[in-house]
C-alpha cells in the first residue's frame, strides 16, 4: 500500500508529474526514489527520463510507444499495487572530505558569528550528522541536501557572488551542499572539498538522489594530498551502507 495520497498532473503532452503531499520528508522522498527506480527498470513504461524532486517525480514517456492515457493507467495500477514490504532501503553514506578554512570558506567567520560558535564548534556541528540528498539539479551533481541544525542555518547572501570555485561547500538556510563546477553562488561558503565533483569526460556524479553525504573535516595538508590522489584517479570515496526499515 502506498502511504501517501497523490495526483497525476500532465506537463505538456509527453510528461507527467506524480505529486505527493507538499513537504520535505525523507520517508516520502525515499518512496519517490524507489518508484523512479522501478519505472526506469520496466521497459513497458517507455520512460525516457525521470526527475525525482522533494515531493514530485517528473516522468517523461515516449509517446511514439505509449499514449498518455496508457501511461496514466499503467502508472495508476503500479501505484495501486505498490508495496513497501520489500523496501528495506539500503542507504549509502558517502564521506566527503572538506577543508574548512577562511581561505576556502570566505563566510566561515560570519556563519560562526551568526551561530554564536567558535569555528571548531561550527565545523563540529556541520560534520556531526549526514545529510540526505532529496534531489539534484541546477548543475550536474548539485545536491539539494538537508538539513543543518537551526543554529547554523544562516540565510543566503543578499547579493550572490559572481563566482565561487568548484568544490565550494556552503549553507543556505537549512540546506547545505557543494558546487560541482565554478558558478555564481548566493550560498554562504564555509569550506572546499579537494575532490573533483564534475568531470565533463565522465559527467555522472558519484552520489545519487537518495544517498547521504557525510562531511569530514580535513586540514590543509590532507586537502593537498587528497587532491593529488584524486587527480591521479586513485581516490576511493569512503562509502558506508546502512539498513533502515
Amino acid at each position: 500500500m502506498l502511504m501517501y495520497p497523490y495526483n497525476l498532473v500532465a506537463v505538456g503532452e509527453q510528461a507527467m508529474n506524480l505529486v505527493f503531499p507538499e513537504k520535505i520528508d525523507v520517508a516520502e522522498n525515499q518512496t519517490i526514489q524507489r518508484i523512479a527506480k522501478d519505472l526506469r527498470t520496466d521497459p513497458t513504461f517507455a520512460l525516457l527520463d525521470a526527475i525525482p524532486a522533494y515531493h514530485t517525480l517528473t516522468l517523461y514517456f515516449d509517446t511514439q510507444r505509449i499514449s498518455e492515457a496508457q501511461f496514466r493507467s499503467k502508472l495508476t495500477v503500479y501505484l495501486h499495487n505498490y508495496t513497501d514490504a520489500v523496501a528495506v532501503t539500503q542507504e549509502r553514506v558517502l564521506e566527503l572530505p572538506v577543508c574548512y578554512t577562511p581561505e576556502f570558506g570566505p563566510d566561515l567567520k560570519d556563519v560562526a558569528a551568526f551561530a554564536g560558535l567558535s569555528i571548531p564548534q561550527l565545523i563540529q556541528m556541520h560534520t556531526q550528522n549526514s545529510y540526505f540528498i532529496y534531489m539534484m539539479g541546477f548543475l550536474p551533481g548539485f545536491a539539494y541536501m538537508g538539513f543543518v541544525p537551526d543554529q547554523i542555518a544562516m540565510p543566503r547572501l543578499n547579493r550572490p557572488r559572481a563566482e565561487v570555485p568548484a568544490g565550494s561547500v556552503g549553507i543556505a538556510g537549512k540546506q547545505t551542499g557543494m558546487y560541482p563546477v565554478a558558478s555564481p553562488a548566493g550560498w554562504r561558503i564555509i569550506g572546499r572539498t579537494p575532490l573533483k565533483l564534475y568531470d565533463p569526460h565522465a559527467p555522472l556524479p558519484k552520489y545519487q538522489p537518495g544517498d547521504r553525504i557525510q562531511f569530514k573535516a580535513i586540514n590543509r595538508q590532507e586537502y593537498e594530498r587528497i587532491k593529488t590522489v584524486d587527480q591521479a584517479g586513485k581516490y576511493h570515496l569512503n562509502i558506508k551502507k546502512t539498513k533502515e526499515a
Binding site: 505538456g12 525525482p52 514530485t56
Partner: peptide, 11 residues
C-alpha cells in the same frame, strides 16, 4: 512559494 521540481521542455 513552491518547492523545486523537475522541469519540462516548453514550460
Amino acid at each position: 512559494n513552491m518547492l523545486s521540481e523537475g522541469t519540462v521542455l516548453g514550460n
